[in-house]
Design a protein around this nucleic acid. Sequence first.
RNA 1: GUGAGCGUAGCUCAGCUGGUAGAGCUCUGGAUUGUGGCUCCAGCGGCCGGGGGUUCGAAUCCCCUCGCUCACCCCA
Length: 433
Amino acid sequence: MEQKPLTTLPGTRDILPVEIPRWHLVEDRARQVLALYGFQEIRTPLLEATELFARGIGGDTDIVGKEMYTFTDQGGTSITLRPEVTASVVRAYTEHHMYRGGGITKLYYIGPMFRHEKKQKGRWRQFYQIGAEVLGSDDPAVEAEVIEMILRLLEQLQVEARLLINSVGDRNCRPGFIAILKEAISQDLGRFCDDCRRRAQTNTLRVLDCKVESCQPYINRLPRITDHLCRECSEHFQKFQDHLREAGIRYEIVPRLVRGLDYYVRTAFEMVSGELGSQNALVGGGRYDGLSEVLGGPPVQGFGFALGLDRLVMILPDSLAEASVDRPEVYLVYLSDEALKAAISIARLLRRQGVRCHLEFGAGSLKSQMRMANRVGARHVLIIGQDELAKERYSLKRMEDSKQWEVSLPELSQYLQSLPAAARKNPSSTNDK
RNA sequence: GUGAGCGUAGCUCAGCUGGUAGAGCUCUGGAUUGUGGCUCCAGCGGCCGGGGGUUCGAAUCCCCUCGCUCACCCCA
């Protein structure tokens, strides 16, 4: 029977070779910048106990409520594909007693997340994040430093984003504000949309985040959390802003900014881009003191962020991406079976010297091999035919300016080694400093 | 889960009020018997998403179905 060819699942995709240079560029730059700021990589499992996220993220959130890929394994354990990593990092921090060294711990991660959402522009079911967590400090200076680091990365990648900040209070002042908010909403309850009326009960703060046009006038009239912070939170927020200003960082206070994860306290922030369409959040993060205790660990202060790699790659300037393509240095063209053997041998020699080589097996005419060399972006073509074999001197053509000359093997090696490193190594590789 | 739009060659799309398929790009070959990119010429390539209906005749009209995209919700 005729079968439909299998394809990727909705919301998942293959990242093809032509796109990989963009990803490498972003990942390489990110690792460099994170290292500059003293972060170390941690790799946690993609699979975790469902309870980790259910408790860590919060049962009222959309993520836990309807977006997790959860299944029961053969042993009857409820397992979930991670929808985010902060809870995992905090778990690992405690599990491996990383707090025992004293001081603060700076960790970063990079990898795929899974959320069962409807796909649209900039939103996938499997998507990639780079994120970092600073554990063991509640200093607002840490927050400003992390934000500075992200901006440094975006700057290097020539990506523009607006920084939005807010304080969502803490255990002392937030309950009081929620009560005030709920009271204020009930004054005009009939004028809000259905979702807002529901959220007023279940997740009151999220009413502030409603995007429905008709709700806007009433939301604007609601009390602002920044006016109802306790003294400690208020001071924290002020110091945070002082540090941002001293670093010369521009920001906008958005009192309505409420993030979708329950664990945030005090500082919350987002970076948004106008180039992303409706899903405009490029980076999101905040402070989560207390998360560790919710997971059954010791008290640990924490601050972190996650950056959407897919979205960053999407808006990366093409010019940057093109510069980071790994082009073959030498494309070997052969004109007979005997020449093929010589080509294989020469390629082996050059590769031992660190030269990127390419040759096509079962290739066609000289013309078609030249065309292929051009297509793969080879900088040079080495032509091996009867004449060359007889003389043991080969025709080397520089594609850029079409100059061609004859070289012996030692001359070839010497010439290739003499090329400027920038011409052989792409700018995103780690050893171009 | 809700709404809107779209499914025609590998890709981007044209095909008006029904007459059994086209362009550009890509690819292959030639102009240039051992030389790429530009140009010109030729060629390969399509159960017009799938199923049913109306009709002498459907890519075109109607119904159903599947898929994709964007938006809402929410988020990276």
